[in-house]
Nucleic acid binder design. Sequence first.
DNA 1: ATCCCGAGGG
DNA 2: CCCTCTGGAT
Length: 218
Amino acid sequence: MTRKERFAQFIQHFATHQPEAETELYYENPFQLLVAVILSAQCTDKRVNATTPVLFKAFPTPQALANADVTEVFEYIRSISYPNNKAKHLVGMATLLLNEYNSEVPNKVEDLVKLPGVGRKTANVVVSVIFDKPAMAVDTHVFRVAARLGLTVRAQNPNQAEKQLVKFIPEQYIARAHHWLILHGRYVCVARNPKCNECAITSFCKMYQANAKKGLLI
DNA sequence: ATCCCGAGGG
DNA sequence: CCCTCTGGAT
């Protein structure tokens, strides 16, 4: 099976069975999504969602967060990974939003990555989810699942994976494909023991087919 | 012990 | 290109 065919089957399957895929992060406006995605680095969405409602209530606007004390923000996010760094990043991010962007979340990746705590992955999530742009954010799930399926080939880092995925996926599917890969990775194609016996797309999964050929599965 | 929607600094 | 940050779930 060629890679182009894998992509075609991948899109065909999820467009049919999971057309409504979207982020599981809780947010009610662009600012809240930006904060949530910054917090989500190396942390489960579930844990982020357990802390953000209280955080958003305490700091509802970029101005409120910019004027906050870092140690106070830390207390709200202490149960999330890297709370020290993230508290610092959140206050710095809000300060830059307030001073340079009129308290509004910028809509370009090149501007977003200037914000403290915002790297390429976070910026891609924001422009994709908020501004509906065809950007592919490559996180741990996307990187792993795309490699297993054979949608990426020998990608050694997220940037290489992103280039390959964007190249093969039609623009109108990129934002959804991002969430398809994430959700599949979170619930089926998990890191440690992928649930291949529950997986609906083994017929075009490169890893599954390779393992089956070796007699390792089923 | 490993993983979770990574980013920044050296 | 490393390294560090660093809590909770499995």
